[in-house]
Amino acid sequence: MRVSLTVNGKLRESEVEPRLLLVHFLRDVLGLTGTNIGCDTSSCGACTVLIGGDSVKSCTMLAVQADGTEITTIEGLAGEALHPVQEAFRQNHGLQCGYCTPGMVMAAASLLAEQPHPSEEEVRAGLEGNLCRCTGYHNIVKSVLAAADMAPVPAPAVAS
């Protein structure tokens, strides 16, 4: 089936098998390997991308379901400068091995778009869909709180 979707502001079209998962479309068809696969069982959040600004686990969605949508991956989050969440992760050492980081950053961007000034508890609850095997949660939470202070957080680009 032919799908046509906007990924990081660029219109991408491709013929895909209906069973192709969105994460494989992003990584294998478009070569956007910043989106990681961790568990492949909908638990870890490493594969989180934004669809219309909302965080979604791309291992639990078919590419055909994303037809016509606007997707932002970690590669598309920064503009001229890093996105505030990325900048805050850098400044606060919000990563160890970095495997969970793309998903954490995307989940945090979605969280801050919904709740621009969350409490620490709200950040922890807002990241419950993302696991860090290095268990570096403390600095991740610190980074997200710092990003909220850097606001304004621009809403991820959505055309419609």
């Binding site: 909908s42 959040g45 969605m61 979605s110 969280l111 869909g129």
Partner: peptide, 9 residues
């Protein structure tokens, strides 16, 4: 239910 990503879908 689940987590924010699950609740978005």
């Amino acid at each position: 239910i689940g987590d924010p990503q699950v609740r978005h879908r």
